[in-house]
Design a protein around this nucleic acid. Structure first.
Lengths: 342, 342
DNA sequence: ATGAAAGCGCTAACAG
DNA sequence: CTGTTAGCGCTTTCAT
């Protein structure tokens, strides 16, 4: 493998000059530069980034720490879409992405900063980790520039990008209220997700502002899983037939809820209206198609990558909050019980 | 940042001893080892893999070169599922994945081996590149261990994993023939994909073996795109109403074909039977659900990663061919025109 | 405009 | 069992 030493030898100059010529420094005569470039090409030279990184103390790599790249995450390709956005931005820069292959067992062996320092990544993008993950405290304590996705934690070196989950959830619930629903349930994710807390907050705000009573028994956790949500919905609706609408913190769970309802012989949306969250691909294909809150996952990744690269160039960590959009489809309908009244 | 030098100083030994102790060499007394490990922990030491890679001349990283990580690839998350499989295997090893962020413009600037040598990757997994991609010839010429996905090219350092596309397509078409169809069309991908060639071959074999006439005008290319397939199907079926069945080289294209047929007022499967290929998530959710050939994309990634790591440990490059499975759903049905006869 | 020399953090003969 | 020495390929003072 060719090194600058080889080039130097052939060109009859020192390695210093080769290095400077190849890196475009001005203090080398145009003639020598051309000669060196020519020789480099002939010798099929590629710089060794490892050596360069070692001496420059920066690697031009960005670490990607995602939890949610597993077999079960395929239906809801949140992770992939974010990744696509990240990749799209990074492709325009001279950084490369290194995907930390950490499964949960491995994660416990190595700390966050160990992971990052070993590979000497310049910055990190974190996605999909839970609120109780020990990595989270490390992120803030460490001085490695980091951008979080959907995790509202900020510090000097840590920024984040998210959507307005409170407002998003609020829009969803307001939609149900406007349709005349008053007995509204919520299928939330789990207690270890920031988005769950925020979407619950949005649910509460919408209900309170409209003076609709909140029944805490009607708020259950579906673990962001289609199957769990189905089971929980079965329980919920068999106990409380009076519920006419339900807001789900993810489309996947909404799918589970619809399944449960169908099993019970209830019609969506005639008997129960269902709103999801995410606007996953399936949402528009299933029957009935899902009313939902859309968020642009591609953009989330893109913005995260963009912010991180800016931070690496000296800019401040910041917060980016993206818009959501209510998409009305077939799974919601006017409250049938109120038909006479309205 | 702590280095082995710091540890050596504190422990009162040489860096060599530290290196050996930390790397588990046997030729260091248990007492010194324990002391060194203890100090390393206290000093919060992480090894610098860059330095290690430089001297050892291997980086413990695997390059991932995928074309198809873009916004449009979200419906058909082939890429993501393969990636998940790769990640799943790699997570069990001490390798990390580096995602080469190359868009098509950037790709033309740097050659394949430049890309790999710069980052000094130990091996590469390649996915989704076309048959006419200049990278392909480079892969074979280069001596970097490489595993291809769905590209049947083999050499000393190059293996591949794929599914039996000929047989897969054959099964699909035989299914249609068994249902009594004789006027069978094919919506293929494009000429620059190996799988297209193979699936076409399977189509031909099934037809010939059953003595069903092949009409070359009924074989069209949909570019693996839902939209293009829809357009092409519109043309095809308006010219040739006699076609009663069509085999599509991807589910996405099958979706487009179904759309076209619906637009023309034709029913699937009553008027036309449609078979897809891939068994993407949507296949079972759309209406009518899609009869298709399933392939295990997760496993493809997993096997590819596994093969590459084995090669890096000295084993031979090989070929892995995975099974496919015919999944019969609602989009295919007995040929109605033959009802009287059969 | 160019070169000599030092050093990034680590491993690997070799010698003792 | 341990230390000395050299060197991986590159950048960067500091001279000249």
């Amino acid at each position: 493998m060719t090194t600058i030493k080889d080039i130097a030898k052939v060109a009859g100059v020192s390695v210093t000059t080769v290095s400077r010529a190849l890196n475009g420094y001005p203090d080398v005569s145009e003639k020598t530069r051309q000669k060196i470039i020519e020789i480099a090409k002939q010798l099929n030279y590629s710089p060794n980034t490892l050596a360069r990184s070692l001496v420059m103390n920066k690697s031009k790599t960005i670490g990607l720490l995602v939890s949610g790249m597993n077999h079960s995450a395929i239906k809801d390709n949140f992770t992939f879409e974010v990744l696509t956005g990240i990749n799209d931005y990074i492709a325009k820069t001279d950084y490369d992405l290194i995907l930390f292959s950490t499964n949960s067992t491995k994660q416990r062996e190595k700390t966050y900063s160990q992971l990052c320092r070993e590979r000497r990544v310049d910055g990190v993008i974190l996605q999909g980790i839970k609120t109780d993950d020990p990595y989270l405290t490390e992120v803030v304590e460490s001085d490695i520039p980091c951008v979080l996705i959907d995790i509202p934690i900020q510090s000097d070196k840590v920024g984040y990008v998210t959507t307005d989950n409170v407002l998003g959830a609020k829009k969803a619930v307001q939609h149900l209220i406007e349709l005349g629903h008053e007995n509204i349930a919520m299928m939330n994710g789990h207690d270890y997700a920031f988005v769950s807390k925020q979407r619950l907050e949005g649910f509460r705000q919408a209900m309170e502002e409209a003076n609709v009573a909140i029944n805490d028994d009607w708020i259950v956790n579906g673990e962001f899983s289609e199957e769990v949500a189905e089971k929980k919905a079965l329980e919920l609706f068999s106990k409380h037939r009076e519920i006419t609408a339900i807001f789900c913190a993810s489309d996947l769970m909404a799918l589970g809820v619809v399944k449960a309802l169908k099993q019970m012989g209830l019609s969506v949306p005639d008997d129960v209206s269902v709103v999801g969250y995410d606007d996953i691909l399936l949402a528009s294909y299933v029957s009935p198609s899902l009313t939902t809150i859309a968020q642009n996952r591609f953009q989330m990744g893109y913005e995260a990558a963009s912010m991180l690269v800016e931070m690496l160039e000296g800019k401040e960590a910041k917060v980016v909050m993206l818009r959501t959009q209510l998409i009305v489809r077939e799974s919601t309908k006017k409250n049938q019980l109120l038909k006479g009244r309205m």
